[in-house]
Simulated scan of single mutants.
Amino acid sequence: MPTSLTTLASLPDLLRLLAVPVLGWAAYRDIQTRRVPNRTWLPLGVLGLILLAVDLWAVVPPTTFTDRLVLLRTAISLGFVAPLAYLFWRLGGFGGADAKALIVLAVLFPTFPTYFLPGVALPVVVPTLGVFSMTILTNTVVLGLAYPLGVALRNVLRRDFAPVMLLGHRSEVVDLSEAHGRLMETTEGYTRSGLDLDALRMYLRWRGTTLADLRADPENHRDPTSVGETYEPTDGAVNAASGGQPSEFGGPHAPAEVTADDPWAAERFLDEIEGSAYGTDAETLREGLAVVTDRELVWVSPGIPFVVPMFLGLVAALTYGDLLVGLLGSLGLL
């Protein structure tokens, strides 16, 4: 029977377990707000670098095959998994928090840790490659694949059928002010690249109006000359200070030159804000505004917060091990 924590695992591997509550909190924040503060990752990143230095100190210069294997696995984690996270972010496949989380995990978990419990050593399934951050990533993908199946089942039970039923659900338009995700409809049909709901909130705050007011008088809002003073759009977060109210974002902007052929003042909005409204262009914004002012129900893709399956993938990796290797092995494919 273990008599101390150090008999359960090495001290570095015990310290690595701090990633579990931190990532769990980040997953909760991601579900609630789709925002994870940057400061979340700094302590784990620093811890990862310290533990990495400790591990490398023990194997440099390498004198055994095991030492060289540790160096190879570390090189794969830092030289492949971490850059892959950055690449996914650049291509739009990851959010900023998703990429930072995976990069931190690549530094913190380059090789498989080992935890000794009574009668068993965890993780149970350790692949030949032995790069723990890669296992976290593959576990994340495997668990993430369950999401569209769950969405589809929910839609079947509610008898909501559409070509996009694997990726979204129907929502009342009046609820979009506090929803996360992206519209999956245009005035002409379904789409996977509709208006981002954060961008919608940015637009409403920029105009100093609300979704209810927009729906009550769409013709007036469609007229670009109806836009007078404009306000800070914030970042579109649900709980951010609304435009037009005194806040840390400052006061209203002076009216800009009005272009008559700019329905909804969409181009003016995109020209005035700093940065990008989550990749939204003027036409996408106009289509989205036309949809939310014309319909009572719309299809919305809530988008799965990737930090959530990453947290579950980390927990699965620390206990069971590599889900994909285990699945392929059970099917006789390995």
Rank of each mutant, 00 (worst) to 15 (best):
G250E: 06
R39Y: 10
A152W: 13
G92P: 08
N239Q: 12
E272M: 12
E248P: 00
G48C: 03
P62F: 08
N239E: 13
G228I: 09
G150M: 13
S276H: 14
G275N: 12
A75E: 01
A97Y: 05
F161W: 15
H253R: 14
L167V: 12
T319H: 11
W299R: 01
V54F: 15
R158S: 14
L87G: 01
V131Q: 03
G96Q: 01
I304C: 03
I103E: 14
T280H: 06
L71Q: 00
L84A: 12
G250M: 07
W41N: 03
A277L: 08
A241W: 12
L15H: 06
L204M: 02
P302A: 05
L5A: 15
R170L: 13
V308Y: 02
D223S: 02
W57H: 13
G251I: 04
S193Y: 10
L323S: 02
P255N: 13
P127M: 01
V227H: 13
L149D: 06
V227R: 11
A146D: 03
V20S: 12
R158K: 15
L5I: 10
D196Q: 05
A106I: 09
T111Q: 11
Y278V: 05
P12G: 05
T6V: 09
A82H: 10
R170N: 07
V59G: 09
A256H: 15
T128H: 10
G329H: 07
D55I: 10
P263T: 08
L297N: 07
G168K: 10
T74P: 00
P305G: 11
G244H: 07
L331V: 09
Y115E: 03
G208H: 07
G92M: 11
T293R: 02
R268K: 11
T230D: 01
A121H: 09
G93I: 09
P233N: 12
Y320E: 04
D55S: 14
L334P: 03
S276M: 09
A266D: 05
V164D: 01
L105K: 13
P21E: 15
T74W: 02
L18V: 12
T225S: 15
L204C: 00
V36H: 04
G208M: 04
R90K: 12
L167K: 01
L78V: 03
V325M: 09
R29I: 06
H169R: 11
P255R: 11
T74N: 10
G321L: 05
V308L: 14
R222V: 08
V131E: 11
H169G: 12
H221R: 13
S133A: 15
M184W: 04
R201G: 04
D196V: 06
L270G: 08
R192C: 02
P61L: 14
T40V: 14
P218A: 14
G130D: 01
G79F: 13
L214S: 04
V120M: 07
R295M: 09
P163Q: 07
V325K: 04
E274V: 12
R158P: 08
A99P: 02
R215N: 03
F65S: 03
I273A: 08
Y115P: 00
N239S: 13
L78N: 06
G119N: 11
L117A: 15
W299E: 10
W41Y: 12
A199W: 08
M184G: 07
L314C: 06
E188A: 14
E232D: 15
D198C: 05
